[in-house]
Structures are given as structure tokens and as C-alpha cells.
Design a binder for these strands. Structure first.
Lengths: 197, 197
DNA sequence: TGCATTAATACACTCAATGTAGCAATACAT
DNA sequence: ATGTATTGCTACATTGAGTGTATTAATGCA
């Protein structure tokens, strides 16, 4: 990686770090983009050079994360069903989020603000929708004989819908991280048994 | 309904009508809220008295529509499984949308702009998320013995995720309205058969 | 008729987001 | 090493969404 690219990456991290800190200190709405940029000793314009919107600073690593999930679906394992592959892909993405965003405090800030700030929630949902589309496509290409595009979308949509909805409710009921994780893992099976065939 | 309330409803409709027309004429981004208000012979401030955001003018009837779905889950039929009840509730909401939003052109404008305008898409997804939560709660209360809150969320999330994802892909592939409808109806069953148990 | 409510307005303001032009550091060629 | 192109960042100006506040006028109601 060249020096120029490295510096760019550092300013990006500085913006994320400043944003997370300010959001914690004074709340999301009460923090302006100008303040974030100033705290990182950068111009406001630079912020929007790195992030398309204020909320995006909280969803910094989402693009490569989706690629990870798509890649996981790409190397289909022998004897693995579409559902299993999908669950494995989702697991890989969750693991990546834990590894990269937990240490910086980004994961915690995101989890809190998604629950409280409608704008952040909307942006996350949008990202999830595009991720879901990408995963559905990958699923279709991994199982071209079993799943046509519409069927792949239905399966991917159901799996992601089940897992995320279970996570939201589990979190809202104050369950422990372990219990939340269990609820997420159980969700697709629960859905499968109760949905009409 | 009193005269005051009726007038309020009329201004609301005037705003929706003007917005849909202007969005068609000049596009979503190139239409300002000020222009919508002016076209309806109202002040800009009045627009935000009726809609919290510019995008909300396209999602005008969503709140009562969700209540319809919740009510449908409320009167559980004898021998009906949770999945069947959910599908029936979703069907009722889709029917309401067809009846109310098709004649005004609102449905068409919404369908087109959700696919092309990220801001509209984000807002719709957010509305769907809250609707999903409400439906999951209603489902839990309709089947308290079979579904705990987390399980109800998983089932509702899977069903809505499957149906909406199938609809998006079907639309994108240029299928006819009838085929789209069929894809939506088949989606939960498709998901159920492929998800791991 | 008088009083309370409230839909709509006017006005001023904040802030997110974009366009443009310029500067300075980096990359890269000869 | 030196010139040239690239590009990350800045300064400045501007648009437009969304909010706060006070005011007006019509409606609802006693």
C-alpha cells in the first residue's frame, strides 16, 4: 500500500474515531458533521469525501463484509444445503464484524444508535437490503439447479429476515450476548417449522 | 368527521396529489418540497405539518395499513397455523394498498421511486421494519402457547423477508403483475422447504 | 355570543450535502 | 534529480430539508 493510500486510510479512521467519540459524548443528533471533521482536524468537505452521508460513518466496513459473505457462498461445500451455506455465510459476516468493529467501539456505538436514531436505522436497513440482494445472487449461482433467482431471493430474504428480527427482539428483551447469539442461530429453523409449506 | 378534520384530510390529499404529479414530471430529486407545497397552494411549513419528511408523502397510508394487518392476526381462525394467519394478514395489507393507492397513482409512483431513489427505499424499509415488529407482537399474542416473542419475530421476519425479496426480484426480472403476485404467494413455502431445520 | 382549539402561515434559522476551483503532497516518468 | 500528472484535502458558495416560534383565522363548543 502506497503512502498516499495509507494516509487516506488514516484520515478515514480518524473520522470514524472522532465520530464515535462525539456521538457518545453528546448524542448523535447534537453532533454535527462539522464538529466531527473539526475534532479530526479535517475540513467538513473531507468528511463527505470519505462518507456519502453522516450515518455512513457508522457503517464503515460494510462493503468488504458483504463481499466476505458472497465469497463464503462461492465455495460451496459438498453435501451442504442452500440453507446451511447461507447460515455459514451469515456467520462469517458476523464474525468479521466482531473482529473488526468491536475493539474500536464502532460495533457498540452502531448497536446503540441503530436502536435509537431513525436515520441510522434507515441507512442500516438499506445496506442490509443491498447485502441481501448480493447474497441471493450468490446463492442462486451456487445452487443453479435447485434455486431459480426468485427462489434464491425468497430463501435469502427469509433467512436474513428471521435472523435480524430475532436479534432485535432478543436485544430488546435484554438477553445476554450469548442468548442473543443462540436466538439468531435458532431463528431460521424456527421460521422453517412454522411457515406454511 | 367534522369540517375541520375533513379540510385537513383534503389538504393532505392535495399534497400527495401534487407530489406524485411533480415526481412524475420532473423526477424525485429535482422536485423540492417548496414546489410541492406551491403546487398545492400551501406553504412549505404546512407540508411538514402533515409529513415528517419528503419521502413520507409516498407512504401516506401506511400506519392504518399496518393496523389492518395486526387486526387480521387478532381474529385468529380455528385450526389456522401461525404461518397461515401471517400470510392472510399480509394479503389483507396488500389488498388495502391495491384498493387505496392504485387509483390515485400513488402505488405506481411508490413502486417506481422505491426502485430508483435510495432515500425513498430507506424510508420504506424503515416503515416495513416497524410494521414487522407490530405484526410479530400480534402473532405472539395470537399464538402465546406456540410462539414466544423471539420465535414470533423470527417467523414474521422470515415471512416478510421472503415475500418482499421475492417481489423485488420478480419485478426486476420484468415479470407480469400476476407472476409477481404468484411469486410473493409462493415465497414463504419456498423458504420453508430450503431453510435448515 | 364568547371562548378554546387548531390548521395554516410567515419568518428566521440550522445543518446536511454538493459543486467548483485551487493548493500541496505523492506517484511516476524520463 | 527534475518535470509532470495524479489526487487527497481545503476554502468558499450554494441548495434544500427540516425545525422553532409567534401569529392569524377558521372551526368546535359551551
Amino acid at each position: 500500500m502506497g503512502l498516499r493510500e495509507a494516509k487516506k486510510e488514516r484520515t478515514r479512521e480518524a473520522l470514524v474515531e472522532a465520530a464515535v467519540r462525539l456521538f457518545e459524548e453528546k448524542g448523535y443528533e447534537r453532533t454535527t458533521v462539522a464538529q466531527i471533521a473539526a475534532a479530526a482536524q479535517l475540513s467538513t468537505r473531507t468528511f463527505f469525501l470519505h462518507f456519502a452521508a453522516k450515518e455512513d460513518v457508522l457503517l464503515a466496513n460494510s462493503v468488504p463484509r458483504v463481499e466476505l459473505g458472497v465469497a463464503a457462498l462461492g465455495d460451496r461445500r459438498p453435501g451442504e444445503t442452500p440453507g446451511d451455506a447461507l447460515v455459514r455465510a451469515i456467520g462469517a459476516m458476523v464474525a468479521d464484524a466482531s473482529a473488526k468493529d468491536l475493539p474500536t467501539g464502532l460495533a457498540a456505538a452502531r448497536a446503540r444508535l441503530v436502536a435509537t436514531e431513525p436515520a441510522v436505522q434507515a441507512r442500516l436497513l438499506q445496506r442490509m437490503a443491498t447485502a441481501q440482494t448480493a447474497l441471493a445472487d450468490a446463492l442462486h449461482h451456487a445452487y443453479p439447479d435447485e434455486l431459480d433467482p426468485v427462489a434464491a431471493a425468497a430463501v435469502a430474504g427469509a433467512a436474513i429476515g428471521a435472523v435480524s428480527a430475532a436479534a432485535v427482539v432478543a436485544l430488546r428483551h435484554g438477553l445476554s450476548p450469548t442468548q442473543v447469539r443462540e436466538a439468531m442461530l435458532k431463528a431460521p429453523a424456527t421460521a422453517a417449522t412454522h411457515l406454511p409449506k
